[in-house]
Simulated assay, not measured.
Amino acid sequence: MMAGTGKAHLQDQDVLLRVEDLVVEYATGRGKKVHAVSGISFDIARGETLGFVGESGCGKSTTGRAVLQLPAPTSGSVVMNGVDLTTLPKQQMRQARTHIQMIFQDPLSALNPRRRVRDIVREPLSIWRPGDRNSDERVDELLEQVGLDPAVVGGRRPHEFSGGQCQRIGIARALIMEPSLLVCDEPVSALDVSVQAQILNLLEDMKQKHQLSMMFIAHDVAVVKSISDRVAVMYLGKLCEIAPADTITTRAAHPYTKTLLDAVPIADPDVVARRSQTAPAEAPSPIAPPSGCRFRTRCPQAQARCAEEEPVFRKVADRHFVACHYPNVPVPDTSAATENGEGSG
């Protein structure tokens, strides 16, 4: 988070996944390291889709992979169904991953080009449930659910399909083990706009049909809003705002969130002329992030306090939290770091 102490945890819902103080760092040599993710905390409730949005390189995908321990985070905890995944031995972690599946950004490269579609979708069952007599029926059922005819596609290989069809195959493979959580790592960014809508609708249908929770990662604010219940905004390895999807687009509190929204093209030159400018300059290096608020070097509202003090999450409305000293919406005097009005360390 943009904070070292405040956390925007859910207190009134059945939480499936709770991530606490997640840190991911990579050594680069000469004693330096990349601060890819720096102490973020968040929850995903059962049946909820939490969207992650931000510029390329902000740590979204790294966060998603750290949840699956691919690789394991440098520090912090990832608790799913009451079990801290960071403490599990290798074999138990492999078993735990059957309940967390990932959908990748490039659908074609995520599929084995030498294997036929039916074998690709069946492979998780072959590994974890060998001898399952219902595996063929399960494969056919899932292929039909994602909009593919098993009689037509089952014997073909990935290179014979379009990107959208390959992503449907990847979704079927992810669902074969009946997971509780799907980590979707920019699953539509490599697809045409018309196909993006089809895949988003498919994911929403599968969420309802299979009672899934989802962690949805993308750089497109409109895409994230269309599928998410809540949205988490990331910048340079930190979370800066978490709010319901509608609130993010109508009452953004953090200057960086406002910058992302202003960068979305609108087919009206008069409207564009009235919009604020995007953040100046390039983002700082994650090897040497700025002190205090990491967005301060590009923020039009930055003041001396922003360089000296790291902002903590504060509640600005129901289920709406922001880590900013000078947010764009009023902060109640009684605000706290958690949804039940109590601070969280």
Rank of each mutant, 00 (worst) to 15 (best):
227 I>V: 14
12 D>Y: 05
288 A>N: 14
46 R>E: 09
160 E>Q: 15
298 R>M: 08
182 L>M: 10
65 R>N: 13
97 R>E: 02
65 R>Y: 06
271 V>H: 02
165 Q>N: 06
78 V>C: 01
240 C>A: 06
50 L>W: 07
14 D>Q: 12
74 T>N: 04
183 V>F: 07
53 V>K: 03
63 T>S: 11
47 G>E: 14
270 D>C: 02
97 R>K: 14
54 G>H: 14
270 D>H: 12
111 L>K: 09
338 T>C: 12
93 M>W: 05
144 E>C: 12
34 V>Q: 09
155 G>F: 00
304 A>T: 14
63 T>E: 04
98 T>L: 11
195 V>I: 15
202 L>D: 07
217 I>V: 12
31 G>I: 09
222 A>E: 10
59 G>P: 07
336 A>C: 13
147 G>L: 07
226 S>G: 01
185 D>F: 02
259 T>N: 11
231 V>R: 03
241 E>N: 09
92 Q>Y: 01
3 A>E: 12
87 T>V: 04
21 D>C: 00
156 R>C: 04
77 S>R: 13
218 A>H: 01
142 L>S: 06
2 M>W: 02
326 Y>M: 10
214 M>N: 03
321 F>W: 09
282 E>L: 14
286 P>R: 00
106 D>L: 06
59 G>I: 04
314 R>H: 09
256 Y>E: 08
41 S>V: 10
30 R>A: 12
16 L>S: 07
288 A>D: 15
142 L>Y: 07
182 L>Q: 08
